[in-house]
């Protein structure tokens, strides 16, 4: 397909490659031919994934960042761009695999935690902010680039939809943070799309299967020029 061919050899920074969602998406994007710079908070898993991707013939490198530390994001981006030679795309797809409980655990009010909220906000919305801040000078220099962020449909519905809804305490943090990310991205999109950098998003139901074809389809659509006129949109996958 033409849209898939046009992505071959393009360079992409991917935040959030360590969890099951990010890992699967990275593997599929590599199959489409994207070169990938993988960024996460823990080096071990992204390094392994990076090595696996190299084995299937794509350029890949990994780097770590520290939540809330702008300088670590800037250094990671500079290192990746130096290795890849250029930058076309940024995908912010951080996710909280370790914290989301799909099992039918009850919502325990006494487990509500202000500290946990701080952690989710900084790791998720904060990292998206710092990631975009770090890549933007490179993209604006060339008046080109595409940024795709992910969040959860629970930001709109307050819950996952369909079978196996999020029922745990963490869904509070994800609902609020997803909405906050939508607000942030909408505002950022308005500001930087006229400067040549496109911003769109994909919101997915947290219970979506990681190998659901619609995930890759949504990303191919938004990364390719088919979506040239699509600005500031969020594709919702329920």
């Amino acid at each position: 397909m033409e849209s898939m061919r046009e992505l071959k050899g393009k360079n992409c920074i991917f935040l959030g490659a360590n969890d099951s969602f990010g890992r699967e998406l990275c593997k599929n994007l590599a199959k489409v031919g994207l070169n990938l710079g993988l960024i996460d908070f823990d080096h071990f898993d992204s390094l392994n994934l990076s090595n696996n991707l190299k084995n299937i013939g794509v350029k890949s490198i990994s780097a770590t960042v520290i939540p809330g530390k702008a300088i670590s994001f800037e250094k990671a981006v500079a290192r990746i761009i130096e290795y890849l030679g250029d930058l076309d795309f940024l995908i912010c797809a951080y996710y909280f695999d370790e914290d989301i409980s799909y099992e039918n655990d009850e919502f325990h009010i006494d487990k509500l935690s202000m500290e946990k909220w701080d952690n989710v906000l900084e790791k998720w919305a904060g990292s998206y902010f710092l990631m975009i801040k770090s890549v933007l000078p490179h993209m604006l220099n060339k008046n080109k680039g595409k940024i795709i962020f992910t969040n959860l449909t629970s930001g709109y519905t307050g819950e996952g939809e369909g079978e196996g809804q999020l029922s745990g305490i963490s869904s509070l943090y994800f609902s609020a943070c997803s909405s906050a990310i939508t607000g942030t991205m909408t505002s950022i999109a308005r500001e930087i799309i006229p400067l040549g950098v496109k911003v769109n998003g994909v919101a997915f139901n947290p219970t979506l299967k990681r190998d659901d074809d619609r995930i890759l389809n949504a990303f191919i659509f938004l990364l390719s020029d088919i979506s040239y006129y699509t600005c500031g949109q969020i594709i919702r996958l329920y």
Partner: peptide, 20 residues
């Protein structure tokens, strides 16, 4: 962005808390 992030975050939260 920061003002909108804060104020739009309540949309998801309102539905979530309503349910719970």
């Amino acid at each position: 962005a920061p003002y909108l992030a804060g104020k739009s975050g309540f949309i998801g939260l309102t539905k979530f808390f309503s349910e719970k």
